[in-house]
């Protein structure tokens, strides 16, 4: 009886600990969001979206940084996602069981969690060094390389979810795999692939480290892809570490914008995926 009570007590203790752990995790999320909101909302104003980043002590906004982030993220996705989708298609359709695919799958998973700063160094070495200067296109390339593993993984997973019968039916009509893929499999897996794109955008739009020595930063308005370009993460980095109150406020405002954007993207991706699963469940 005594032993039984001891076991129960031990059980209760560990369960309480696990509850505390969960509370801690949620508290961290709440604390971060709260700080972001309280500091960021204070700095929110129209100036953010209409003015350039200011010199210390001056008044300004984040327009050039927002523009730069949008351009480089977009370019990164435009370059990276087709590669990811095509490679994912190869793994799911052509090379499903080949040795090459096994290796690529493994390497891709490694790239998925590889430190992004390394990718920054890589692009610095192959692009910036050869061009002789930092540029927006180098930044976009670094982001593209980060987008590839995410889109590849989701594309393969989503294509594998398409019922085999659909692929066989198309082949049975005499369609070549390319036709089956483009006309049947991609539409069937569309929301899944879009989810992957959203996740990739969420992943790269907050990346700082790979931009530090590729796109660098630019205090001024610049639309040249061949020149350094301002971007939100690097501006936040520089302004937050500066001793100037104005700059720190701008950094907080930028941090709030970036976090809200990414959370909205991640949540939409999740909702899309949930809808997809619900549709699959009732559709059959």
């Amino acid at each position: 009886m005594n032993r039984r009570a001891l076991r129960k007590a031990k059980n209760a203790a560990f369960l309480v600990l696990s509850l505390i752990a969960t509370m801690t995790g949620l508290a961290c999320l709440a604390a971060i969001l709260w700080t972001l909101l309280s500091h960021g909302l204070a700095g929110m104003s129209w100036h953010l979206f209409t003015q350039m980043t200011p010199p210390p002590g001056g008044q300004g906004g984040l327009l050039n940084a927002l523009y730069g982030s949008a351009v480089m993220t977009l370019l990164g996705i435009l370059i990276g996602s087709p590669i990811g989708v095509l490679a994912g298609t190869y793994l799911a359709e052509y090379g499903r069981n080949s040795r090459l695919s096994t290796v690529i799958r493994f390497i891709n998973d490694v790239l998925l969690s590889a430190p992004s700063i390394i990718i920054g160094l890589f692009v610095y070495e192959i692009v910036v060094v050869h061009m002789g200067h930092f540029s927006a296109i180098a930044g976009a390339l670094a982001l593209a390389i980060l987008a590839i593993p995410v889109t590849l993984r989701t594309t393969e997973d989503m294509l594998n979810l398409v019922p085999v019968g659909m692929k066989d039916s198309s082949a049975a009509l005499g369609a070549y795999p390319w036709r089956t893929t483009l006309s049947v499999l991609y539409p069937a897996a569309r929301s899944g692939i879009v989810t992957g794109l959203l996740l990739a955008i969420a992943r790269i739009s907050g990346e700082t480290a790979p931009l530090l020595f590729t796109a660098l930063n630019n205090q001024f308005w610049s639309t040249h892809l061949n020149a350094p370009m301002a971007n939100l993460p690097v501006v936040i980095f520089q302004f937050a570490l500066s001793p100037y109150k104005d700059w720190q406020d701008l950094a907080w405002a930028g941090a709030l914008i970036i976090t809200v954007t990414i959370l909205v993207l991640s949540i939409s991706a999740r909702v899309l995926l949930a809808m997809l699963q619900a549709g699959r469940g009732s559709g059959r």
């Binding site: 995790g25 961290c28 700080t35 907050g206 993460p233 990414i262 959370l263």
Partner: peptide
């Protein structure tokens, strides 16, 4: 999972 999506720079500034 959302906590995992927050970019690292936010953790830094926080």
């Amino acid at each position: 999972e959302l906590l995992a999506a927050v970019p690292s720079i936010i953790f830094g500034i926080w």
